[in-house]
Amino acid sequence: MGPNTATTAKPGSVDDQSVDAPLLEPQVDNQRDLPPEPSGVMECEDLNVYYGDFHAVHDVNLIFGRHEITALIGPSGCGKTTVLRCLNRMNDLVAGARVAGRVAYHGADIYDSKVDAIEVRRRIGMVFQKPNPFPKSIYDNVAYGPRVIGMEVDDLDSHVEGALRDAALWDEVKDKLKQSAFGLSGGQQQRLCIARTIATKPDVILMDEPCSSLDPIATSHIEDLMVDLREQYTIIIVTHNMQQAARVSDRTAFFTARPDETTGNRTGLLVEFDQTKTIFSNPSDRRTEAYISGRFG
């Protein structure tokens, strides 16, 4: 079954569903047997994030399983992007951002003072919300990572080809590798960004709403791609599209934001984390149920 035929509702956000729509059934793709507890590649323990005085994320505890796709879902502003950006220290680049708690990668705290953020990012790659290819040729976009990190590859051409094949883009671009990446469509650009990321052979790939600027066909390409990539990579994806989470992810973490009584600031927190099929068919928290059935914006 293709991803587009599967769901009862239109692809889109929670707003597309009527108030008492039936709970979504998880799709074929993630009905594989999972260990009850993920074998963690990465782990957050009591993760708290602050932007200056603003407490953005409160006490998040998560384990990201090897060769699994973990989806982070929840309403806008609940801190999904913030949590994701903590996982490869991209928040280091935000002035005023502060991370407390522990983020472990294969058991080692990536915020340890001896850890080099650049080394972290070489192992934990990231695909952004909006495709952001470099103003370079398609080839040079993919070759960029291996070149700057001094990766030892036998043959850069075939390495680039391999990454483009893995990103399901090779056939569309093989005749125009020397052309600017800006000539590609949005969906192709996003797959190029995925190719660029996997060209450095990371261990974990973070994706922040990678389909939010794409049309449904390009979206389904990327979703198929994610499921393929799961065989080799551990994938963590932020999405506000619940059907997407249901279609591609193995486990789902549902976040929400709780206003502070005194300041009114909305601090994000993790409500529930479980196998995707459980989250979508039998959530244990009322807020999760309300959100995925569309009773909560």
Binding site: I118, F128, N132, G145, V148
Partner: peptide
């Protein structure tokens, strides 16, 4: 655009590489 710098840094490039190989050519 900052998105280009972020894309480069997220791949494990350092700041100098990002400046010389991405920002400067752009």
């Amino acid at each position: 655009p900052d998105a280009l710098r972020q894309g480069s840094l997220a791949m494990g490039a350092n700041r100098m590489q990002t400046t010389l190989r991405v920002v400067f050519p752009a």
